[in-house]
Computed example of a mutant assay.
Amino acid sequence: MSSTTPLANNPGYVLITGASSGIGAEIAREYSRRGRSLILTARRTDRLEALARELGVNAPCVVITSDLSQADAPRRLFAETQARGLHVDTLVNNAGYGVPGRYLSSDWRVHADFLQVMITAVGELTHLYLPAMEQAGRGRILNIASLAGLVPASAGHTMYGATKAWLIRFSECLALETAPRGVLVTALCPGFTYSEFHDVNGMREKISKMPKFLWLTSEQVARIGVDAVEAGKTRVITGAPNKLVAFLCKYLPDALARALVASKTKDFRDAE
């Protein structure tokens, strides 16, 4: 089955990467509430299956286990959905994590896997699923970026902000290319969000010291993101405090913005 299988006369599925927890799981719940059929993918099969049992009462919910740090994972995931006749008209590139510490505190293999998940897999999955969306004249691509991609860099988690900045620019370019063909693309830029993200990268203790008003729940972020892509917004920042931070970083002199970010991020970012 070719990558350009028409979607127009088939029920479209929402494919969500990194769907086993956090923002990804909440995006699945949000689309399920809207009656959409789902394809859930991540590394943890047990978590995916539990979520599928929860959401399967509303609409079809398919689980496909995949580790996007493996170079062939995007192609295998695409082949599996094609073989099952699951026509994807909405792609949510959500899978992601952080690598704490200095750049040289981790082996290159750790960074290479990180880049595979955060950039290469996103680009390849989009390249695989987009042709059918354009042929059908309808599609949605929601890329989960971060406020970190819009503010000056700081020490620690060296490539995280860089990959999110790439994702934002990729989404903006893609949106201009695909909108005339009926495909809407959105970069969602959350700030601090209650999820397992900070447990996975070992920063829970530090990050919990941040003021409560800066935080949103994963459910709030998911709803904002789904609403944004359905409305055709190219980029959306979650929460008034985060919008203010992005505004200040854009219009303050570069040196001052960098100094402010550096002074604040040392409170919650591991640079050792």
Rank of each mutant, 00 (worst) to 15 (best):
G149L: 01
V117F: 04
V88N: 04
E205R: 14
S69G: 12
L142H: 07
Y103I: 13
A42T: 09
L130A: 12
L38C: 06
G161K: 10
S69H: 10
R76G: 01
L252V: 10
A19P: 08
M133R: 01
L252E: 02
F268M: 09
K250S: 13
T81R: 02
V62F: 03
R138W: 09
L260A: 13
I119G: 00
A240R: 14
T90M: 08
A259I: 00
Y97V: 08
K209D: 14
H87A: 15
V221N: 00
L147I: 09
Q70D: 14
T41P: 08
K209H: 15
L68N: 04
K233Y: 03
G12R: 09
S69K: 11
R235M: 11
A155K: 11
T65F: 09
R36Q: 13
T45N: 10
L184S: 13
T5N: 07
M1C: 06
S171I: 04
P180T: 02
A52H: 05
N201E: 13
L15D: 04
D67Y: 12
Y13M: 01
K266N: 04
A132M: 08
G56F: 07
V63E: 06
R204K: 15
V14L: 02
M118A: 14
M203A: 14
T5I: 13
G225D: 02
L214V: 10
L130M: 08
G85S: 08
V14H: 03
M159N: 11
I27F: 04
E230A: 13
T4M: 15
A259G: 07
A271H: 12
A255P: 00
R84H: 01
Q220V: 04
P131M: 14
A73F: 10
E172Y: 01
S105V: 01
V57A: 11
W215G: 04
R138H: 10
L188P: 06
A25M: 05
I27S: 03
D199P: 00
S195L: 05
V117S: 07
K233M: 10
I64T: 10
C249W: 10
N242V: 09
D270Q: 12
A71H: 11
L184K: 15
P6Q: 01
V92G: 00
N10F: 13
T186P: 01
L184Y: 10
L176H: 12
A132D: 07
G22L: 02
N143Q: 08
Q70N: 14
V236L: 06
T217G: 09
L104F: 11
R33N: 13
Q220P: 11
P241D: 04
F197L: 10
G182V: 06
I119L: 10
A19I: 06
A132Q: 13
S20R: 06
V57F: 00
K212Y: 07
S37C: 09
T41K: 04
S66Q: 13
